[in-house]
């Protein structure tokens, strides 16, 4: 088996008396799309936030590319190659769509302590910012202000910003949340078109998960109860009992 890109070992996070993350072990292999599913309140977003550095774990280790990043601040994790999208869209609302992606591109091009040349007429920013917009099919909206976009379009923009930094690992927190069926299917196509991109994904939409994921981990009350291919997960009794049974 190939060397994993991301290794999570014995991760623990407690809020008050609640184990939001309880001894989580997880590997993400290069090029795979790895989905994490689980009932509401299972601690999925908490887990992602620990991987992207918004929350620091109480115990355990996070290794990325064989480097210990457990204590690395969020902004430096972006530099080692982790990009995340947020479940509740987190965008720069009063800027244009292209400005938003251009900021991601800026971040990828090193520091931005450049105080003189106008950013909005900088081809080194504008052109690379348009590429991911084309990938997600939002390039026609490039000049719109984010506050003018529909919910689905904002989700696409989230995706474009994550793509813009050419990350080694994309963390996607419910990219289809609040989308209609058609929009979801479009997003599935977009994600599929990314090919070799390594993705760790949280998602509620089971059709999307089973269509996309190479492997699935099931998180229940902060614990990973099973990991396997979609077929294995589908036929896993414990998973059925803990999760799919409830949902069905």
């Amino acid at each position: 088996m190939t060397e994993p890109l991301l290794r999570v070992q014995g991760l623990q996070k407690r809020f008050g008396g609640v184990h939001a993350t309880d001894d989580v072990n997880l590997n993400v292999i290069p090029s795979e799309t790895h989905a994490i599913i689980g009932p509401n309140g299972a601690g999925k977003t908490t887990l992602i936030s620990q991987l992207s550095g918004q929350i620091l774990p109480d115990a355990g280790k996070i290794l990325f590319d064989n480097r210990d990043i457990t204590r690395l601040p969020a902004y430096q994790r972006a530099h080692v190659g982790i990009a995340r999208s947020f479940q509740i869209t987190s965008l720069f609302m009063d800027m244009t769509v292209q400005d938003n992606v251009a900021l991601a591109v800026q971040a990828h091009q090193g520091h931005s302590f450049r105080l003189w040349r106008p950013a909005r007429s900088d081809d080194h920013l504008r052109a690379p910012a348009l590429e991911p917009l084309k990938t997600v099919g939002l390039h026609e909206r490039a000049d719109w202000t984010v506050s003018e976009l529909s919910h689905g379009e904002r989700r696409q923009l989230e995706m474009a910003m994550a793509l813009a930094v050419a990350p080694k690992l994309m963390l996607l927190d419910e990219p289809m949340a609040g989308m209609g069926h058609e929009e979801s299917m479009q997003m599935v196509d977009t994600l599929k078109s990314l090919g070799d991109q390594t993705i760790l994904l949280i998602e509620h939409d089971m059709d999307a998960v089973f269509a996309l994921a190479d492997r699935i981990s099931v998180l229940v009350y902060g614990r990973i109860v099973a990991t396997g291919t979609p077929e294995e997960i589908r036929s896993n009794d414990e998973v059925r009992r803990a999760y799919l049974g409830e949902a069905a």
Binding site: A74, H108, F113
Partner: peptide
């Protein structure tokens, strides 16, 4: 209007995101 300015202005609206971007 420079790259620096874009970061400053973006951080005003959404500081968490500007961090997540790196």
């Amino acid at each position: 209007n420079s790259r620096f300015g874009m970061v400053i202005r973006a951080a005003k609206g959404n500081e968490e995101r500007i961090r997540a971007l790196g």
